[in-house]
Structure formats: structure tokens, C-alpha cells
Write a protein that binds this DNA or RNA. Structure first.
Lengths: 266, 266
DNA sequence: GACTTAGTTTCAAATGCTGGAACTAAACAA
DNA sequence: TTGTTTAGTTCCAGCATTTGAAACTAAGTC
């Protein structure tokens, strides 16, 4: 293994990287984008950007609305993502276990993995409400102020953790947000000692959760899961009573995953 | 010479196209792939393929498992697909309506769009069973032998329909499969006249459905939805009784989509 | 230890990407 | 109408990038 130089996600390797960069730009806009809107944001000259958009549209990675002259994400991505989700996320393996947990607790269970220093939700299960799935899977959230994020950070290798720290914004979402590296570090030590962690309304007011990491036998972090509720319905103390179940569920998923084996994360 | 455009189903324009081609190959393998497995399939020389895999892995579009030496789809796709699903599929708009329909009928409702001549399922709702979502969204199926596929084909423009026809395999899945262009064409005329269509166990034995297209005011096909059941539980005749509800649901979604995508022109 | 298979690196050649600039199309004034 | 601005598309010379045969390393196999 020669020097695996990477990190970053902004500065792209080769033409392919630049094209994917453009894809991200369209994605992050969150709504149909005009060519000129992208031109303002993108570090590419007109003709170059234009060509990328053409290529990506041709390839079905973007969709062009000729009536309005706007670009949106293409459906080919949905197809590809299905493969990604099915073949390299924890979700298919974990599903039976998290549905059980959701049923036992009566609360919403989230399953997440770490991706580029951010939390990527790959599944969600709510015993009460029927569906609402894809709407959550694929969503990303901050690592430093969510239950699953902190649970994963707490058990990462030092180097991986430092890399992840470098990517945290430490934006103060609420009064409770741990908005400095030091406060977060202290919290992570506690989580590591305890084996599970909480979200004490650090990301959204009124939303609390109890989360545990999913670890391989060798201690590598595969993901995390959480039982989420609201302060209106329950309390942190009540949630803590379920910590045992959360960890047991994580252990079951880990055991199951061990049979499968897992890819290195970039 | 020899440098003729090689076409393997799609037109690979430029480096980006080729790289995405490789992505598709990994996706279609359905499980972790070794470099050499891909090399057998791919129309690229060793070094070229190797470089593509490196780039895609760097970009998070693929994940590399160094222990086993295999590639799988990367989690970045899941993130991108969430954006695609949220911003350019019908699903977010349609969801309340299809959950209603699922509840009313007590059956499974599918929402699909046409993508590259194939049916792409973008949402699914089952009143009885809780989840099972991402497992379906992103899945593709044949157009010529599914209820939603035929419903969409029936209302497409002539040119789009011909293009789609060219991509159908007409593989005979069951006894009932309409396995020639002519038989399909006749069926489409009937569907067009009726406003809705069926799947008469044409794709899977025992599975039947009643489907209707979702059309803009100008008649453009946005997608289709279906109420699916089994011959064990119900009959085509009983399903047909629900055709009115299916079409009404389609109309509601169309109306809603009209507001979102084509606001009042001033 | 010789041989095979699997994956990685190199480098000269040439392909295909780049981006300034010219162009067309539409929108808006005057 | 005609001139002006803005938005998107095409051109093409020049050169950065990609290409792929071949050489190489690493890990199995006999």
C-alpha cells in the first residue's frame, strides 16, 4: 500500500472527480438549479461546467427540465443507491433487529454509519408510523451533536477521530450543543467508558436519544443505532433504562455482521 | 480505426461516462467484486479499469475492502440518491396520497417512474406491514410486463414509446407474459382507452395489480401507481373495483405535482 | 525453487479535455 | 421596430490527461 493520499472531497482527482463535484453541487442546492446559479458557485469556467452538466445529464445522473431550464438529480442515482444500500450498508442485516427494538421500546430507532465525518442515516424504524423510509435513509447529519454520531466518534481510532474532528463545524444548534472540540472530547471519553451515549437536545430542541455503537470483535466501528424520543413524551432517565436493550441490539447486529465482513471506510 | 464507439447498452461519453459504466458494473454484480471479476466483464484494459476503480473509491462512490480485496458500492451514492429522491422524484409529493390509498384498499401500493425504458420504483406503501421501504425504492423492473410499466407506456408519446419498446427484452416470465411487441401494443391501446391497466400475473405467478398513470394536464407521463395483491387473496375482478380509487389517487398526485413543478405561468 | 495468478506501477504516445471567445436566443428597453 | 442585456450553446487550438502495453511485485501453487 503506497501512499494513500486522500481526504478532502472538494479537490477532485481527474475529470471524473470534477464531474462528481458538480453532482454534489446540484445535490446541495436542494432544488432545481439553473445553469447560471451553478456557474456562480462552481470553480469551473462556463464551457467546462456546461460540458459536465451535459455529460451527467446524458448519463442520467442529472435530469434536465427543458421547460424551466433547470437541473435536478437524476433517477439513475436512486437505482445505484439501491445497490449501495443493499450491498454495503448495515441496513439489510440490521433490519430485523431494529424493528424488534422499535417494537419493544415503542420509539423510533435510527441506524447510521459514518461517512466523510458526517452521520449518514441508513435506516429508520418507527413502530407506530408505518413507512417514512427513504425520506430518512440517505439523510446526513452532524456527528458532534447527534447520539449516533457521538457514539461512533467515541469508539473510532485516534487517527480516524482526528480526521473526523477536523470536519466538524461545531455550530451551536441549541443551548445544549457541545460547541467546542474540548467539550466534545470530554463527552466522548464518558461515552467510551459507559458504552452508550445520549443526545440531550443538542441538535434539535425537544429531541433526545440514547445511542450505542456497533463494533466488530476487533473494535472497529461499523455504525451506530439510537432510540429517539421527545422530551414531551419521555425523559433522559427513562431512555437510559433502555440503554441495555440498545446495546444488546447493537451486539446482535455486530455478530450478524461479523459473518458478512465489512468494507474499509474512506 | 477500431476506435468505434463501443456501446454496451448505454453510450459512454468521455471519461466520466466510462467511469459511471464501471460503477454500474459493480452495482449489477450485486455483491462484493474482485478486480479480476470486473476485468473479465469490462471492456477496458487492466490499467485503465484499475485507475477507474481507484478514482471511484477515492470519491466514495465505491468502497474497497482491503481484507478481501473487493469493491462494493459506496455510501456517497446513498447520500446523493436521497437528494435525487427528495428533489426530483414524485415520491415526496405523492406519499400522503399513496398511504391513504394503501389504507383504503388494505393492499400494497407502488409508485414508479420510467427510467431508461425500465420501471423504477420510487416508493411503496403497505398498510399492514410497517417498513420494507428502501428495499423497494430504487429497484427496477421490466416495463412491458408490470402494471405500472404498461400504464406508463400506454400514455407515452409515440417517439418515447418507440424508444422504450426498443429497450424491452420481452422475456417470457410467466405463461401470461405479453412476449411480443404486437401483443403489448394491443394491450396498450386497451389501457389507453380504459385509463388504467392490469398485471395479470405477467411478471410473477400469483401477483396481480391494477395500475394507473400519473399525467400532467398536458398529458405528459410523470409516473404511475398500482394496487398490488395476490391471486390467493383476491381476484382481478375485485381489484378492478378499486380502479376508480387508483385513478382518483393518480389525479390527486398529478394535481399536486402540477403546483410544485409547473406553477401558474403569469 | 520454478511457475502461476492477482494486483500495481510506469511512461511514451495520443486522445480528449480545457476554456477564451465567438455565437445564438430570448428578454427587455426605448 | 431596433438596440442592449442576459442566458445558454458551440468552436477549436493547445496542451493536460488519459491511455494501455508492458514491466513489475506479491501472493499463492505445485
Amino acid at each position: 500500500m503506497a501512499g494513500d493520499k486522500q481526504a478532502d472531497g472538494g479537490h477532485a482527482d481527474g475529470t471524473v472527480g470534477k464531474a462528481l463535484d458538480v453532482l454534489d453541487m446540484v445535490a446541495s442546492h436542494g432544488q432545481p438549479v439553473r445553469f447560471s446559479d451553478l456557474l456562480d458557485t462552481a470553480p469551473y469556467p462556463k464551457a467546462t461546467l456546461y460540458r459536465f452538466l451535459q455529460t451527467l445529464t446524458n448519463q442520467g445522473m442529472l435530469a434536465y427540465d427543458s421547460d424551466r431550464g433547470t437541473y435536478t438529480m437524476g433517477m439513475r442515482l436512486v437505482r445505484l443507491a439501491h445497490a449501495a444500500w443493499a450491498q454495503s450498508s448495515l441496513a439489510p442485516i440490521a433490519r430485523p433487529y431494529i424493528t424488534d427494538l422499535a417494537r419493544q421500546t415503542g420509539e423510533t430507532v435510527h441506524l447510521a454509519q459514518m461517512d466523510q465525518g458526517q452521520v449518514l442515516y441508513v435506516d429508520k424504524c418507527n413502530a407506530a408510523k408505518p413507512v417514512e423510509m427513504f425520506s430518512q435513509a440517505g439523510k446526513v447529519g452532524p456527528a458532534y451533536c447527534t447520539g449516533v454520531g457521538k457514539a461512533m466518534l467515541a469508539f473510532m481510532s485516534d487517527s480516524a477521530m482526528e480526521a473526523a474532528f477536523a470536519r466538524q463545524s461545531f455550530h451551536r444548534f441549541t443551548e445544549q450543543t457541545l460547541d467546542t472540540p474540548d467539550r466534545l472530547r470530554a463527552e466522548l471519553v464518558a461515552i467510551r467508558a459507559r458504552g452508550y451515549g445520549f443526545d440531550r437536545e443538542e441538535h434539535e430542541p425537544g429531541i433526545i436519544c440514547c445511542a450505542a455503537p456497533i463494533l466488530t470483535r476487533t473494535g472497529r466501528v461499523l455504525g451506530a443505532l439510537s432510540v429517539t424520543s421527545t422530551t414531551a413524551r419521555t425523559s433522559l432517565e427513562a431512555l437510559e433504562a433502555e440503554a441495555g436493550q440498545v446495546m444488546a441490539c447493537a451486539a446482535r447486529i455486530a455478530a450478524e455482521a461479523e459473518n458478512w465482513r465489512f468494507p474499509e471506510q474512506g
